[in-house]
Structure formats: C-alpha cells, structure tokens
Amino acid sequence: MPDIKVSIKNLYKIFGPKGESMVQKVEDGATKTSLQADHKHVLGLNNVNIDIPARRIQVIMGLSGSGKSTLIRHLNRLIEPTAGQVLVDGEDVLAMSDAELRDFRRNRMSMVFQKFALLPHRTVIDNVSYGLKIKGIDKAEMRERSQKWIDRVGLSGFEENYPAQLSGGMQQRVGLARALATDAEILLMDEAFSALDPLIRKDMQAILLDLQEELHKTIIFITHDLDEALNIGDNIVILRDGAVIQQGSPQEIVLDPADDYVRDFIKDINRARVLDVSSVMEAGSSDSGLSFASDTILENAMPAMSKADVSSANVTRDGEVVGMVTLADMIGGIARPESHEGDQVTYR
C-alpha cells in the first residue's frame, strides 16, 4: 500500500445561502435535482472520499458540471467546503489560519490552470518566477531557478516574450514551469491540457509523464477526456453530480465499469492500449516459446504474437510463468462489452 499524500474525507459542498443546513438533507437522500428544485441550493460535492497516494498521478474525471473543478479547488482551499476534511500529510487544510494557508500554497501545493492564467503584463521568465517572488526568494536565485524550468519545458529563448506572443501550448508550458518552480510536492492540474489542440495535448502529456519520471510529484489531474485519463493516470476517480462513482486503476475501470455512466464513458476507448496481458490471461502454460511480462499491454502483445506466428504465449511476473494468454482471450478482451437490454444512459 503506497503512502497516502492527500486524503479527502466526507467532503460536501453545497452552493447557496444556507449550505450547512442542506448537508443533512443530502445525507438523507436529496439529489442534485431535488435540492435544486425544493431548496434552491446547488449540490457541488456529495460526500467525496478519496485517498490520493504520494508520487503518483491521480486523475479525477467527469463531465462538465460533475464537480471536478470544484473538488480540486478544495484541496488548496480556493473554495471553502460546506462540510468535511482535506488532509495533506495528515494535516487538515481546512483548519489552517490565513497565514498557514498562504504558507501552504507557497511551498507545498501549486496549480496549473485550464486557461493558463498567466500575467499578461509579465514576460515568460517573470511569469515562471511568480511563485518564487511571492515566497520572497532573492532575485539571482529566482532567475536561476526559473531559467532551469524554462529550459526543462523547452521554452529556452522565449524568456523575454509576453504570453500573448506565444501559442496556447507554449503558454501552458509557462504555466507548468511556473507551478514546478516553487518545488511544491503536490501539483494540481485543472483541465490543464483541455484548451489545447489534440496533437499539442498529446505532446504536453508526454512532457508531463517525462517530468514525472524524474520528479515523482503527487499530481492531481482533472480532465473530462478519458483517453487523457487512461494515458497519464495511475489512478482514476470518476465523478458524477458531485459524487464519486468509481475509483481504481485504468484497467479496473475499463474491465469493470461501476455503472452505465462509466460504461458509456469507456465505450469508445482503445481497450488494447489500456488492458495488459494479465487481465485476460488464463491458467496453464503455453509451449509456443513466446512470453510477455504481465504488464505488457495488448496493443504490443498481439502484433508480437502474430509476427511470431503463434496463437498463445506465457505470461510472466518477475521471470516466473503465472499463466498464459491466447489470441482468442485477447480478442475477447478488447471487444466492447455488450450493453444489457434496456441499458439507457441519460445525461442532463
């Protein structure tokens, strides 16, 4: 069990003048719709419980209006909750005084925004050093550290440009560098790549994974794009109407969707890129001479089998054979599960 960095416990957010008094009603079973209709309050988050492991990428996913941006803003208290706890390293963020909270935001948690949120009147390097300036770090060190991150995200040579002179992808690199420059252990990314073109988005995902390989930050990444979630997430939480519907690894979500909402989410994804051989293996062993490590994804395993002209292969874990897979297993695995009779997913 990895150590838990951020723990969200029984978190409620109800927008409206008398939010506190509505918590009980939600606990008693009021839904987003009924709360809106009967009490004119908007249910933002409904009893959210998530444990976020350290040094991993935790994706929080949902359609717009599902409360994911509201949720991430509770972690650094840009939004105050109606009830509940947010623990970071065991410390309750919601109990912090203003000064403690500022200190926390300066040193322990930084954030990347969907629309970049750069200072338009500052150059790239001044934007990257923003967090350091707030911390009161001296000028020479500030420049040096900012320069390092500018180089790291591939913006060398653009230090003296203004944000408006850069493309969207480049602007978000500035946003990323700004967040990384403070050396906070936790990085919040609120739909950070959603405003970018698909190609640039892939690019940014690659940059992020690349950086994560050496930085090992605790990254909390909000997205509405399942492909993105599966690509970068070590763990995924799916939100709907402010409540957690399912959490687990990408494989768990693809193999065992909790309900129709999730099923509908995953129906168009490339399953071969998510599932690994261990998820479709059966008992026994194969004498084909081919073997795969258990975390080999089907997309890589299948062409290898076809190339070797075999129809089965061993699955190994730490060098030991733990089972076998057949082509038939794999094809079965990537086939979209049939929807049951009367499965009708409706969204509002």
Binding site: L78, R105, F113, K115, Y130, G131, I134, K135
Partner: peptide
C-alpha cells in the same frame, strides 16, 4: 482566473493588489 492563480500561489492581499 489570473486572480485565482495569484491566490493559488499564496499571494497576500498586498501582493495580489500590487502585482
């Protein structure tokens, strides 16, 4: 959003106003 970013990086009231 820019204001929110300033907040998220721990700006004080004065820093937000003047920066």
């Amino acid at each position: 959003e820019v204001l929110e970013a300033a907040e998220a990086f721990g700006s004080s009231y004065r820093q937000k106003l003047f920066e």
